[in-house]
């Protein structure tokens, strides 16, 4: 049960335990350093992830701890004991949410990418290493077990050991390769402009214009013109 694959989209969920301890020579915990490094990525002109092929959307964060539930609630078991006419105090206490804590802090990387029908997670991770290994080292370098990583293959192996399986993966938009999606977005924007500019013109002109348009936008050419990954301006 559960699958990371939906169509050709892949749901990669990574929880990498971060070392407990202090960065040598600095008064900062490893996990806080990771967080600070990720924070710096926000100040760059664009994310390092623009360079990783086939990435649709992804996020990074540091999981400090789990939350202890203290709000009132009505979940399936929370109120069950109330069916007893008299609730012994021991049972009441037993039914209270307990306090839970993590022993390590985790770097969470949750990524949606195009992996094809068979979910080529190795290919994706190796592509990621090849594109941004220095950024990878920057954040994963403080994680347990990362010392075994020295190339694309060992990175993929490491990541798969940190991987969790999705119980349900919902794809609400599109599972085509990223270059197809970006090209499509480019075409959509360009076509809307064309439609506006050519409204009401005579047939021969529209046709001539369309021929020129089609030659310019090259609908089947993924190399260009198109949008670049992470493009936030037209």
């Amino acid at each position: 049960m559960g699958s990371n694959i939906s169509g050709s989209a892949y749901a990669l969920t990574i929880l990498s335990p971060i070392r407990n301890g202090v960065v040598p020579g600095q008064e900062i915990a490893f996990a806080d350093k990771v967080r600070d490094t990720l924070q710096n990525w926000n100040l760059l002109i664009n994310s390092p992830m623009t360079k990783v092929p086939q990435t649709y959307l992804c996020r990074y964060f540091v999981l400090d701890d789990v939350y202890t539930q203290s709000l009132p609630g009505g979940s399936a078991l929370d109120t069950l004991i109330d069916f007893l006419p008299i609730v012994p105090d021991s049972l009441r206490k037993w039914a209270m949410p307990t306090e839970d804590h993590l022993q390590s802090r985790y770097l969470v990387f949750s990524c949606n990418f195009h992996g094809g029908p068979n979910g080529d997670v190795d290919g994706y991770l190796q592509g990621m290493w090849n594109a941004i290994s220095s950024n990878i080292r920057e954040v994963w370098g403080y994680c347990y077990g990362f010392e075994k990583v020295h190339d694309a293959a060992s990175f993929a192996t490491y990541m798969k050991q940190c991987q969790l399986t999705a119980s349900l993966f919902f794809v609400g938009s599109n599972d085509e390769p990223l270059p197809e999606q970006l090209k499509a977005l480019y075409l959509k924007q360009e076509f809307a402009r064309f439609a506006v500019a050519n409204q009401g013109l005579d047939a021969a002109t529209v046709r001539a214009n369309y021929l020129a348009f089609s030659q310019r936008v090259k609908p089947t050419d993924l190399n260009g013109p198109t949008w670049v990954p992470g493009q936030y301006r037209l």
């Binding site: 994310s47 623009t50 959307l57 996020r59 938009s173 977005l185 959509k188 949008w227 037209l234």
Partner: peptide
């Protein structure tokens, strides 16, 4: 902490209609 989106100009509807 850090969120990357390959098509920040597009909503899910835009991706589908594209």
């Amino acid at each position: 902490q850090h969120y990357y989106n390959a098509y920040p100009l597009a909503a899910s509807n835009d991706v589908k209609s594209a």
